[in-house]
């Protein structure tokens, strides 16, 4: 079995977001780029599956749609333990465009793992679109995945609870929190080995974007917090009722 993990290259989640002068793009100066947190968990789980099922999992490949500056993030994924990386040389214009690019390389993989959300533009669509383009089954909000022979034992969150599923391969799983406990941090040996692992750059396929960013804006500044003394805590409930009218 071959596993493909989709990797998003996003600003570190503690980044103070700034935009360029006409607010049409993020100001990337000083931004630290990381593996999208959900994708990092997906990769971690893929590694755990490979270690637990040495005979079943042949290799783990990571893929990203981006320009050369995203290679540091792919190298990090290799250092965590992926066997190979693919970078499709294109700007990730929108979810449909990115999914169309990935469809050109993803068909051979039995299991595709995608994070449920991207921490930059908070898009949630690439995984589902890729599954549809490949005409394969997908399961979303997956918080647990295990291999039992040819069967995948999956836990997913639904609106109002959770479910245990049995799914067959090939499958695309859109994963969320819980899929792995902690993201794996690359060890020194992993970082050394990552330098020698293949990172294949592929030319972009012909595809179109269906949406475009017009501009960005920062949220309005928040008014100062009204403070209440600890001993007067009960009065705050009255304020919420009478002044804020939310109780």
């Amino acid at each position: 079995m071959k596993i493909l993990v989709l990797i998003g290259n996003v600003p570190d989640t503690t980044t103070k977001i700034k935009f360029n002068a006409d607010n049409t793009a993020i100001d990337a100066s000083g931004v630290q780029w990381i593996i999208n947190p959900w994708d990092e968990l997906a990769l971690t789980r893929a590694m755990e599956l490979k270690e637990a099922h040495v005979d079943a999992v042949e290799k783990i490949v990571v893929a990203n749609v981006g320009r050369s500056e995203t290679e540091a993030t792919l190298r990090k994924a290799l250092a965590v333990g992926a066997d190979e990386a693919i970078r499709i040389d294109a700007d990730p214009l929108d979810a449909f465009y990115v999914a169309s690019q990935l469809a050109a390389v993803a068909a051979d993989y039995d299991l595709i793992l995608a994070g449920i959300e991207n921490a930059d533009y908070n898009g949630t669509a690439v995984g589902g679109m890729l599954a549809e383009l490949l005409e394969r089954k997908s399961v979303s909000a997956v918080s647990g995945i295990d291999l039992e022979g040819d069967l995948l034992k999956i836990s997913r969150e639904i609106d109002g609870g959770s479910q245990q599923l049995n799914m067959s391969l090939p499958l695309l799983a859109v994963v969320q929190k819980g899929i792995a406990k902690e993201p794996r941090i690359p060890a020194m040996r992993g970082i050394m080995m990552a330098r020698k692992k293949p990172l294949n750059v592929i030319a972009a396929a012909d595809a179109e974007a269906l949406t475009a960013f017009d501009h960005f804006e920062l949220p309005p500044a928040k008014a100062a917090c009204k403070m209440v003394e600890e001993e007067q805590a009960a009065s705050l409930i009255r304020i919420l009722h009478e002044e804020a009218k939310v109780l």
Binding site: A125, M129, A141
Partner: peptide, 21 residues
């Protein structure tokens, strides 16, 4: 959860631009 799961698949079928949230 369900909207996030099915909207991308439907978007491909309809060739529709999708904006979430």
């Amino acid at each position: 959860n369900l909207g996030k799961a099915v909207s991308p698949r439907l978007a491909v079928k309809m060739k529709a631009g999708l904006v979430s949230a």
